[in-house]
Structures are given as C-alpha cells and as structure tokens.
Amino acid sequence: MSFSGNVVLVTGAASGIGRETAKHFAKHGAALAIVDKDELNLAETECRDKGAIDVLQIRADFRNQPQVESVVDKVVAKYNRLDILINNAAEWRLGHLQTSSVEDFDLLFTVNVKAMFILTQKAIPHLVASKGNIVNVSSLAGLYPLDGILLYSMTKAAVDQFTKLVAREYAPKGVRVNCVHPSFTRTNITRYLLACNYRRLKYMMGWVSNELHVLFRSTRAGFSYVDYLVNWLYVRFTSTTTLEQLFRRNYLVFRSMIRVKLHRLTLTELIVNIDLASTGLLGEDLEKFQESMVDAHPIGRLGTTEEISKAILFLASDDSSWTTGSNLVVDGGRALTMK
C-alpha cells in the first residue's frame, strides 16, 4: 500500500482517530493537510517523523461556515491537487428526546453533517480530476439504535446515507466514497464520558451563582459547603434518585471530598469533581468503566485508533479499488450482540 504523490486531507486530526489516520498516511508517503479547531503542532511533528512528504496545518472551527469553506481552497493553493478526503471531525452530546436541546441539535448537525457536506462539495471537482476518493468516519450508532446518544446517532445515520448517495452519483466519474463504522475505542470512550457530563456541567456553571446564598445559609446551619453541594447536585441532576440511593452512592462523593481537601480545588474544580464522582468516573473508576465495555465486544477487548485508521487507509487505497458506497464495520464484533 502506497500513497506516494497523493494529497490527503484529514479533518479532526488533532487527536484520536484523525491523528492516527494522518500518521498512517504519512508513513505511506502522502502529503497531508490536517484540519482541526485545536492545536495541531504535535500532530504535524508526528506526521513528519513518520515520513510525510509535506504537512499543511489548517485551524478551522467547523461551527463557522466561512472557515469550513476555506479549507479545500487552502489545500489546493498549496498542493494544486487533492486526492483523498477523510471526513472525520465530529461532536458528541449525550441525550434522549426530552433531554436534548435545540442548541445541541444545531451544533451536532452543523459540525457532523453540514461541514462534511460543504467540504465534500468543495472537494469533489478536485477529486473528479484526480480520480480520488472519500472516506467518511461514521459510527456503529449510525446503524443501530444506541440509547442515550439520540442526536449523535441521527447525524451518523445522515453520514451513512450521504456516503451512499454521493458514491452512487460520482462512481461514473471515477470517485469512490466509502464509510467506516467504529465501535468504542479507548480514545472515544473518554470523549463519550466527557460528553455525558457536558450538559450537567454547563447547567451547574450557570446555576451555581444563584445557589451560593443557600450555600452560605447551609454553612451557618452546620453543614459544610461540600455537604451542601453534593446533595444539591444529586437533587438537580438525578431526578430518580431516592434517599436510599443517595446514601448508597456516598462513597464516591467521600472520595471526591478527600481530593478536595488534599488538592485545595477551586469551587469550579470541586463541582466538576463531584459531578464526575456521581457517575463513578474518577480515576480508576474510568478504567473500570472502560473495562466493562470489553464484555460488549465478542473479540474481548476495546479497539484502538490504529485499527480504525488501518481500515480507513484500506478504503482509501487501491486495494479497495472496486469498493464504493460501502459501510465497513470495525467493531470487535459488537454489532453481533445488538438487538
């Protein structure tokens, strides 16, 4: 497998699957354009160390349409061509129908769907000229109804249909379009857990100033501010929590309280730590949660970003030259357990 002479555009390349994919293209001789809203210096260094012919950094926030529209122009201005587009950038949010906001809907569809549409639309004339190809990074959530990630799943289902329609339209013009469907990797499990806490943390930051007067009253009544904050967070964010359940979970909260004493955390840090403690995801608990996910995968372990990136490279390579409109599931067999 060689990508020597090819220009490859990878979005979401600062970390995770995108960064690993960029490194693998670099190893096989590609010239790269790496795109992210976050810092890309480390990713560029790693790509150059792996042997990339050249690396172009593009900082772009995919919530900003003009920034998205400028990406392909910058790539072509530098390299005068484009051979492969990897649409990887995406946002997560946790939520069901009644707990998902219109703001989250707009964010996820803007980043996960609209930006992909714009990039592909801008890139397609150059891909037709080079007889290139596109690999879209979807998710198992695009194929199966996974609880708790309604909006994210909707966007990935859109990615899947987009892949098939564009593949059908551009196959006669020599452009292949495929899609890879990962299950959890260690990298995106961490991202998932952060997404789980996003809305609660957002609300807490907005409400805490309104609750401080109650906080002070509780302190005068003989409760510590940690005692009050713990109970307040549980009442606010666990609507089904009974008093019995509250006490049953206190060992996690006590662990958080000890860390507050040891590390002299700020109020904001305290809130974040207690909130994470309420879901059992501090420190070793995160590792335990990750290990619990192993049971959902018949192969018996979580995937790695390297394994996902190799699947992406296969679809982008001449080894899959007779493959278009395909959904390549890379999930450790998890789909076999879905009902």
Rank of each mutant, 00 (worst) to 15 (best):
H297L: 08
A52L: 09
M116D: 08
A89Y: 00
S218R: 11
V111Q: 04
S130T: 15
D61R: 00
T110R: 09
A123K: 10
K202C: 01
R176I: 05
E169T: 12
I58C: 05
E287C: 00
Y228C: 11
D104G: 07
A157K: 04
A13H: 04
N133V: 10
A26L: 13
K131N: 14
N80H: 09
V72Q: 10
A52F: 13
T323A: 08
L108S: 02
N327P: 01
F254N: 07
H28D: 15
Q121I: 03
L270Y: 08
M338A: 12
T304M: 03
T190V: 05
R186W: 01
G29T: 14
R255G: 14
K23S: 10
V113N: 03
G332M: 04
Y144M: 03
W232T: 13
R217L: 07
D295E: 06
M204A: 15
F247T: 15
N136H: 06
Q121D: 11
N250E: 14
L9G: 04
R191G: 01
M116L: 13
G142R: 03
R264C: 09
G132P: 12
F216W: 06
D295K: 08
K173A: 11
V111D: 00
V159K: 00
A311D: 11
V10Q: 10
E39Y: 02
S130H: 11
G132E: 10
L140Q: 07
I189G: 01
A90L: 00
K27Y: 14
V226G: 00
L150E: 03
N87Q: 07
F105A: 08
G95W: 01
V180F: 07
T190S: 14
W322V: 06
W232F: 13
T337D: 00
L215M: 13
C196M: 13
I271A: 15
S326H: 12
E39G: 08
T163Y: 00
K114D: 08
A22Q: 06
E307A: 01
V102M: 13
L212M: 13
G333L: 10
N64R: 08
M257S: 11
S239Y: 07
W322C: 02
Y79N: 11
K74M: 05
F216E: 14
K131W: 11
T279F: 12
G132D: 10
S326L: 14
Q161T: 12
V72R: 08
G333Q: 08
T238P: 00
V272Q: 13
L281G: 01
L267S: 13
Y152S: 05
F216T: 14
